[in-house]
Design a protein around this nucleic acid. Structure first.
Length: 601
RNA sequence: GUCCCGGUAGCUCAGAGGAUAGAGCAUCUGACUUCUAAUCAGAGGGUCGAAGGUUCGAAUCCUUCCCGGGAUACCA
């Protein structure tokens, strides 16, 4: 929502500087007026100078002249080419919190700007449970899906599960060797954790065998672990398992199915806890052969080339990329071959205008290569493929490494957050245990975690300090949730004291004239642009910051202005309505970030 | 070597070429007989990695350099 006087100013300035024939009015996005200046919002005429083809000062003068006479404007002040204006209470509230339904409904893209989008995220391997790194992926992915839908796009969310390959065979082999017929039920463990244990077990055994090789054979002493993999008994067996899998060996397939079902069941629990739903889940075991035909056809069409040894490759010089092998000399696929296939598969399944991959930034080069190849293949939609590359999550002790046991397990982290939320809740309820304490703690704990992960710009590498990151105070999810809980509480008490119809009838918004009340209205005016800018940048961190600021402004208001003990009935009604409107925006924002709100805290 | 991403307060991070560079945490001072203190009000804390350049104006754009991370596979 943009204020009427700003829209009219835009028209007036456009006509004045560009003439009546200008096709579109110059867009004016006002800024929040800084605290040391007098005014509600600021029109920055420096920024308008280029579009209006005039000097900032001249534009500012013109803007002042127009705004001074405007009925919605209380006062204007010019500092250099900044035009600071205060709005009348009537204009301020009418166009913001007095009609929050409209404000929220209006916060969508124009139809022409809506894009049918397909987002792939999560993409787990079925050999170990999810850890904090996956959590960042999942949180970014689900929030992005939610945000793009919120502003009106048609979005399809898909997952591509990496359920085959030598890493899966490692877990399978370790299970065969050391599993002793255990199951998740027998072990009392989630399936993904159980399988992950065998993956670790495989690695332990592998390292032991590599060490023995090096000790017993001086030829091997200088070799890398990777070179020695196939020389170890267990490494060779893992490769053999993969060959058996690929040739459909019944026993191998049976074990693979069993263990994968354990893992997937475990993932489903984790997804459900986070609130993740995919429109479609692709399994790599179904899709890994795709792509080969496309490459062979590309060779026939002269798009790809064949090397003397038989390998087929793409020449990507014109994209400033190296040659990329697409089929090995033995004509087997490589990683990118599958991706060519699944990209096309996803396109054919959903016909999106844009495809987004939420994948870590170590794969930037891979996606550049993939997108270039899709362009070479001549798909006209290949210009709208986008890799949302997010940074790693590091610990104070350094990188997370499964092998060294330094990963932060996702399920354990959830439990820890929820338990801390529960303790914090219990501490403040004077021995009286709320009936829905578990549900409440779940919402607070997960909200804190998601909010923390979304606070950062996706491309930054996050430092996750368990001590510092698990917090419920300061700019955290619970801080915003708490404001909603406070408003709920006020609402309940108001109804108890003054009856259910406490907020009915006309609201006189102009009674809300303190700086704390006005601040809430001013901030709320920026909600639409915040959402749209976040969606455009594919980055929720701006929305997170907005919610913190609005929540902060409410807490200040809460201290300074009593709702239930307001001086008059009319004022009380107006403040109740104000609070309800703020809550509606906070709820809309948190829900867009896929964060829930507890009834009370 | 080449390419990509970072470097802003003690720490973690925000900062559409625009006003005196901000927030949270930590430290310090104050506020619960009060609509929920998971809160609020305030203080201290900065050579925006360095040096040049462009501009009326640079943390932001350009160049060079330094530091950290990643990529540069016929691994996934």
């Amino acid at each position: 929502m943009n204020f009427k006087c700003i829209k009219e100013l835009s028209g007036a300035l456009t006509e004045s500087f560009l003439g009546a024939t200008a096709i579109n009015n110059v867009e004016i996005l006002p800024e929040l007026c800084p605290p040391n200046m007098t005014g509600d919002i600021t029109v920055n005429c420096f920024r308008l100078a280029r579009d209006l083809r005039s000097k900032p000062d001249v534009i500012a003068e013109k803007a002042i002249a127009f705004l001074e006479g405007h009925e919605d404007v209380l006062s204007v002040e010019r500092v250099k080419a900044f035009v600071n204006l205060s709005l009348t209470s009537k204009a301020l509230y009418t166009e913001t919190l007095a009609d929050t339904d409209e404000l929220l409904k209006d916060a969508v893209l124009d139809d022409a700007d809506k894009v049918k989008t397909l987002i792939e995220y999560s993409a787990p391997n079925t050999n170990k449970p999810l850890h904090l790194g996956h959590l960042r992926n999942n949180t970014l992915g689900m929030a992005l899906v939610s945000l793009l839908r919120r502003v009106g796009n048609d979005v399809t969310a898909v997952n591509l599960v990496n359920d085959r390959g030598v890493h899966i065979c490692k877990s399978m082999l370790a299970y065969k060797l050391f599993g002793d017929g255990t199951t998740p039920e027998k072990a009392g463990k989630k399936g993904d954790h159980l399988v992950g244990d065998f993956y670790v077990k495989f690695d332990e055994e592998l390292r032991k065998q590599i060490k023995e090789l090096k000790e017993n054979n001086s030829d091997f002493a200088e070799k890398s672990d990777e070179e020695l993999f196939a020389k170890t008994e267990i490494g060779a067996a893992a490769q053999e398992t993969l060959i058996k899998w690929e040739s459909n060996d019944p026993e191998t397939i049976e074990l693979w199915k069993t263990m994968n079902s354990w893992v997937l069941k475990g993932f489903d629990e984790t997804y459900e806890r986070m609130g993740i739903k995919f429109d479609k889940v692709y399994l790599e075991s179904d899709t890994y052969k795709l792509g080969k035909d496309i490459v062979l056809k590309g060779l026939k069409d002269g798009i790809f080339k064949k090397r003397d040894d038989g390998a087929i490759f793409a020449d990507l010089k014109k994209y400033k990329l190296n040659e990329k092998v697409l089929l090995r000399p033995d004509s087997t696929s490589v990683y990118i071959t599958q991706d060519i296939g699944t990209t096309l598969l996803k396109y054919n399944d959903f016909h999106p205008e844009k495809q987004i991959w939420v994948v870590g930034d170590e794969q930037i080069h891979h996606f550049k290569t993939l997108f270039s190849i899709m362009k070479e293949l001549g798909y006209n939609w290949a210009d709208n493929l986008y890799h949302l590359a997010y940074g790693m999550v590091n610990l104070p002790s350094g990188k997370m490494k499964s092998r060294e046991g330094t990963v932060v397990d996702a399920d354990n982290l959830f439990d820890e957050m929820v338990e801390l939320a529960k303790q914090a809740t219990l501490e403040r309820c004077n021995g009286e245990i709320p009936e829905n304490i578990d549900n409440r703690s779940e919402i607070i704990g997960l909200g804190a975690l998601k909010f923390m992960l979304l606070k950062f710009n996706p491309k930054t590498t996050i430092m996750f300090d368990p001590q510092a990151s698990i917090r419920f105070e300061g700019d955290t999810g619970p801080y915003v949730q708490y404001v909603c809980a406070r408003i709920n509480s006020i609402q309940r008490k108001a109804e108890d004291q003054f009856g259910k119809d406490v907020c009915e009838g006309n609201i006189d918004w102009e009674l809300l004239d303190t700086k704390w009340e006005r601040k809430l209205a001013i901030l709320s005016a920026f909600y639409k642009n915040t959402l749209l800018a976040s969606a455009e940048k594919l980055d929720c961190s701006g929305l997170v910051a907005f919610l913190i600021n609005l929540a902060k402004a409410f807490n200040s208001f809460y201290r300074e202005c009593s709702v239930l003990n307001a001086e008059t009935v009319e004022l009380r009604k107006a403040r109740l309505a104000l609070s309800a409107s703020v809550r509606a925006i906070l709820k809309d924002g948190l829900n867009t970030l896929t964060i829930n709100i507890p009834e009370a805290m």
